[in-house]
Amino acid sequence: MAHHHSHDNIDWDAELERLRDSDELTAPETAQVVAALLRPSDRDVVDIGAGAGGSATAFAAALAGTGGSVTVVDSAPQLLSEATARARRAAADAVEIRAVETDAADDALADAVGRQVDLVHAAFVVHHLPDQLAALRRLAGLLRPGGRLAIVEFGLEQRVLPWDVGVGEPGLEARLAAARESRFQEMRAEITDSVRLPMGWSAALREAGLTDVRTWSYLVDRPAPVTGPARRAVLRRLDWLRDSAQDRVSADDLAALDRLLDPEGPDYVGNRDDVHFLAAHTVHVGTRPEG
């Protein structure tokens, strides 16, 4: 059954294969982020918008032997099922794994989760929600005093192509990324009850009532030549850029991109040994005040 969020109209269940691939690609970095976030005293974690379960699985593995719990939250039933099953395999009964089917944009989130926890984690979730500041307040409400909210959001635009790919004019990827940015702005405006967030994420966490806000960034760096999940991520990125390129870039740029994406053509990007995958993501963490 296809499942759409009422607010962003994306069929997240249909994204399962891509999300699995993304988890495989970024597993080392996800484990490092989880290790950096968990304090020795942390026992109970909520993973919001769990996707295919990469982060939930890393939390389950890290909490093994502590008597802790991981609450896996997603509004897409197939994703929730996949993420929960993966986390249970990683936990091997050493950690309680709970599944909660609800939307982070729903005011009933706290009731659905049903407990206050040490750490709430939401990776690449909040920017999809209609009122992002209200969402941060909602997520902060899941914390016990002294607990922390960690959100992961995009730090820099991903890059996969050389500046000059030898097809069309140089600088193709930057122009495609600008077109995508323009499409994202439209998508935000089209979300029902969309509210602007005219501040950075760290300021937004403070505005949501959190203190001791800190931020760090990390790279997902897969140099050329890429193979496996990194190669598939390159192809998916270009397909994704193609979706928003129509009517936003020149006919020459569209033609160049189509040549790069044609598996039967001589310029197919999947046969190149000089494409790479480079992304910078940023973690923002705030603490719920005691008392």
Rank of each mutant, 00 (worst) to 15 (best):
P130F: 11
H127C: 07
D131A: 10
G146E: 13
A134V: 09
G147P: 02
V125Y: 01
A122P: 09
H128G: 02
R115T: 11
V113N: 02
H121F: 15
H127W: 10
V113Y: 00
L149R: 10
V126H: 03
V120F: 01
G147V: 13
F124H: 13
G114P: 08
H127T: 08
L129N: 04
V117M: 10
V120K: 01
V126D: 05
H121G: 02
Q132P: 07
R137T: 07
V126C: 10
L139T: 07
G146L: 13
H127N: 08
V117L: 09
L139K: 11
D131T: 07
L136C: 05
P145R: 08
A135D: 15
R115Q: 14
P145Y: 05
R148C: 02
R115C: 11
H121M: 01
D118R: 03
L139N: 14
A140P: 03
V117P: 03
L129I: 15
A122V: 09
L143S: 08
L143K: 02
D131P: 03
R115K: 12
R138W: 12
V113I: 01
G114C: 08
L149M: 15
V125I: 12
G147N: 04
A123H: 01
A140T: 10
R137Q: 13
L129E: 05
D118L: 13
R144A: 14
V113K: 04
A123R: 02
F124P: 00
D131F: 04
D118V: 02
H121P: 00
L142V: 06
G114R: 09
D131L: 03
H121V: 07
R148Y: 06
L119V: 15
L143C: 04
G147R: 11
G114M: 08
V120C: 00
G114N: 04
L139Q: 14
L143E: 04
A123V: 15
A140Q: 06
G146N: 12
L133G: 00
L143I: 11
L119R: 15
L129V: 15
V113A: 03
D131M: 00
L149K: 10
P130M: 07
L133M: 09
V125C: 05
R115Y: 00
Q116P: 04
L133F: 07
